[in-house]
Amino acid sequence: MSSYDSSAISQVRALRTPGGVQAVVVTLQGEVDLQHSPAVRQQLIDEAGKRPGRLVVDLSAVNYMDSSGVASLVETLQRVRGYGGELILVNPTARVRSIFEIARLDRIFRILTDLGEAMGE
C-alpha cells in the first residue's frame, strides 16, 4: 500500500461546549477513499484515544467517501461508545450521506446538519 496520505484531514480543534463538555472537532475534506482513509482512521483513533466527551467529525467539505472511510468512522464510533463518549457527524453532502443510507448506518450514527448544534450552542 502507499504511505498514509493525510490530505483529507483539514483541521483538528479541541474545544469546550457551552455546557463544559470537552470536545474535539475533526474537519475532513476532499475524497475519503482507500487512498486517504488510513490517515483519517489513524487521526480519528488518536483523537478517540484522548477520550473527549464529544468527538465531532465535520464532513461538509468531503465530496466523496467509500466504505473504507465509513469503516474508519464505525471503528471510531465503537471506541468512543466504549468509554461513554459521543460521536457526531456533521453536515455530510447528499452523496456522502447516500453511502450511510446504503449501508443502513444513517440510523446508527448521530448525524446533524449544523456544527453549532453539534457543539450544543
Binding site: 466504505s67 469503516a71 465503537q78 446504503i102 449501508a103
Partner: peptide, 18 residues
C-alpha cells in the same frame, strides 16, 4: 449481515445495492 455493527465488509453490499 448489516445488523452487525463492525468496520469493514460493506463493499460487496454496496456493489449489490447499486
Amino acid at each position: 449481515d448489516l445488523d452487525e455493527l463492525r468496520p469493514g465488509g460493506l463493499g460487496v453490499h454496496i456493489m449489490r445495492s447499486v
